[in-house]
Every structure is written in C-alpha cells, then in structure tokens.
C-alpha cells in the first residue's frame, strides 16, 4: 500500500499482476511511466488500446495476429509443404527469431497432460489433420518441448498422422556453447542416442 491516489494504486495493482513484476517493481514502473508521461505513458496506453481492440488468433494456425489470417499463413512463398507444430505462440516466435524455417506453423495451444486433464480433444489436433489434408503438406515437423508431456503429445500426433504424411521432430542433445561437464545426464543420454557420423 502507498499513499498514492486510488487510480494510481489500481494501476500499480494491475501492473503487479504482470509476469516478472511484483508490487515493488510495479510501483517503480508506474512512477517511471508517470514521470515520462508524454514520451512513454500516453503512447503505451494508445498502443495497448489498439492491440486490445485488434489482436486475435489466426483462424488457420492460432498465431497471434491483428487479422483473421496471420502474415505467415497469408504469405504464398511460405506454402512449401512444411508445417512446424509448436506448443505455444512463444515457441512460434522463438522459431521465427532463428529465421531458418521457411514453412508455416501450427500452434497446438498446450500439450497432453494427465495432471491437468488435457486430452487430445482440448488441443488443435483435429485442425492440424484437416490442414495436412487440405494444404498439400509433405512434412510435419514436431517442434515440441523435450519434456515428458511434450514428447507424449509428439508421439500421439505422429500416431494420428501415420501413413498420411512424413512426420519428423527436432533433434535433442548438446546445446550450442554447452559444456559436457555441466550437462544433466538426460541430455547426454539423448545426445548419445542421436549421435551422427562426422
């Protein structure tokens, strides 16, 4: 609690709900915004208002966009017969940052999870199967997390797409810049299993 007016206190409380921020850091951020009202706060408020009004899921891949079809799905040159399946929009953005994948994406919206009672019907798997059949897809790349839930989902999807299309998944192993001495034994096991001829 501060001695700030109610409106500012409400703003601090709302900012504190953002990831990475607590009550103290939210208070600092709000103070900074108020001090830079003209150059930061007003443009930020305007941008947030615009995004709140226009942001939506792409009807095709579930990427976040400001139109019904996102720029990736709309780009004709990205229709190369490859779909990369990711768990979340954050993973799609990570793949795009790398800039190596030139096909289209499909965001599942989660992974199968016994604990959270998330079954196949709760994910966008039927839509993926539909896209494989209608978009002349030749390869589905499963870029799911190297966790038990992620790989369980990957195997389930591979089962569903068996005999329809080629299904591949990202390799697992030593990260770039990684030192063996600091790796966990699971990563070393996966890397050894996926070893390749030099």
């Amino acid at each position: 609690m501060t001695d700030a007016p109610k409106e500012i206190e409400t703003l601090i409380e709302m900012m504190a709900k953002l990831p990475g921020l607590g009550p103290r850091s939210a208070r600092r951020a709000v103070l900074h915004l108020i001090k830079k009202r003209g150059v930061l706060m007003t443009p930020l408020a305007d941008t947030m208002h615009t995004v709140a009004a226009t942001a939506r899921e792409c009807l095709n891949c579930a990427n976040i966009s400001v139109a019904d079809i996102c720029p990736i799905c709309a780009a004709e040159k990205r229709s190369n017969g490859e779909i990369c399946v990711v768990e979340d929009v954050a993973d799609l953005w990570a793949m795009e940052r790398a800039g190596v994948f030139k096909g289209r994406y499909h965001v599942l919206g989660g992974t199968l999870s016994a604990l959270d009672a998330i079954g196949p019907a709760d994910l966008r798997i039927p839509k993926l199967i539909d896209r494989v059949e209608t978009e002349n897809i030749t390869e589905v790349i499963l870029a799911l997390n190297a966790t038990i839930d992620g790989q369980t989902t990957a195997h389930y999807i591979a089962d569903q797409l068996e005999h329809r299309v080629s299904v591949t998944s990202l390799a697992q192993g030593v990260p770039i810049g990684g030192e063996l001495d600091y790796l966990d034994d699971g990563t070393i096991t996966a890397a050894l299993k996926a070893r390749k001829k030099v």
């Binding site: 190297a146 038990i148 790989q151 966990d184 034994d185 699971g186 990563t187 096991t189 996966a190």
Partner: peptide, 9 residues
C-alpha cells in the same frame, strides 16, 4: 538418475 531421456524416443 534421469529416466526421461531413455524413454522419450
């Protein structure tokens, strides 16, 4: 001991 890596594939 990790068991996940051994069964994931």
């Amino acid at each position: 001991r990790s068991r996940a890596a051994a069964v994931m594939s």
